[in-house]
């Protein structure tokens, strides 16, 4: 279980995340949605202890992320940000193998490498294993980074816009794999999503943020309502139920 209490972060005079108190249950996929600048990524980064909080606490399974040793947390929680720059010439396999670092401390065993191969197969990049990152397309690189994080094999996986750069097929495959990881392996997955229809289709819980505050949270049925989405995004949302899923149409 992930719990945040009065979590606050300011940049200069601007409060980006403003007193967020939130409980995310174990298991399943949670989607963080909201307009640009709502504080989704900052919230995710604070949960993943990439940036510190100005006030408030985050606990993961009762461990305070600000005071737990980094390598203890790294075996329990993994986080991937949107932009990942690597200067070194890394092959896809090298990158994915970094995911085993918290377990192997730089000496990967045969079992670790088995994890690596499995993670690459999962994301359909096993044929790219020996290619270097700078030779890949944006979408292929994105999948390699997600493979690294999954290879870390943590109970909690936080992903900031994992669908960036992915075409429709790969976006759907990625979400399907994440759902399988949640259902079959019991992982808790928190994703920042911009496409609310992906959130509606794949998430078990949707958390909506606006102006650094919690706007609403609930199941897709509870969140995917015209008046709520209008208040959240300022759009005229028309909700249709297609194949049992609520789909939002917001194009003029």
């Amino acid at each position: 279980m992930i719990e945040t209490r009065d979590l606050t972060r300011r940049y200069g005079t601007e409060t980006v995340v403003d007193g967020v108190t939130l409980t995310l249950p174990r298991g399943g996929i949670t989607a963080l949605i909201g307009p640009n600048g709502a504080g989704k990524s900052t919230l995710l980064s604070m949960i993943g202890r990439l940036i510190g909080a100005d006030a408030g606490t985050v606990t993961v399974d009762g461990l305070d992320v600000a005071h737990t040793k980094g390598d203890v947390l790294a075996r329990r929680l993994s986080i991937l940000r949107q932009e990942n720059h690597v200067v070194a010439r890394l092959s896809v396999r090298d990158l994915v193998a970094f995911g085993r670092y918290p377990h192997s401390k730089g000496r990967p065993t045969a079992a670790d490498m088995e994890h690596v191969e499995r993670a690459m197969r999962w994301l359909g990049i096993e044929t790219l294993a020996d290619r270097f990152l700078d030779e890949l397309s944006g979408g292929q690189r994105q999948r390699a980074f997600v493979a690294m994080v999954l290879c870390q094999d943590t109970d909690y996986v936080l992903l900031d816009e994992p669908l960036n750069n992915l075409d429709m097929r790969h976006a759907v495959t990625m979400m399907r794999q994440l759902r399988a990881a949640a259902r079959e392996l019991g992982k808790t997955i928190v994703v920042v999503l911009h496409d609310i229809n992906f959130a509606s289709t794949y998430a078990d819980l949707i958390v909506a943020m606006k102006d650094g505050r919690l706007h609403a949270s609930g199941t897709p049925e509870e969140i995917m309502r015209p008046e709520l989405l209008h208040a959240l995004y300022g759009i005229d949302a028309r909700i249709h139920e297609i194949d049992g899923t609520r789909i939002c149409v917001y194009y003029d």
């Binding site: 980064s45 993943g48 202890r49 990439l50 040793k69 980094g70 390598d71 203890v72 947390l73 790294a74 075996r75 993994s78 986080i79 991937l80 940000r81 990942n84 720059h85 690597v86 200067v87 070194a88 890394l90 970094f98 995911g99 670092y101 918290p102 994080v149 870390q152």
Partner: peptide, 11 residues
């Protein structure tokens, strides 16, 4: 090589 955030993620 993975940068500050990548390194923190790996503990």
């Amino acid at each position: 090589h993975l940068g500050r955030e990548g390194a923190i993620n790996l503990g």
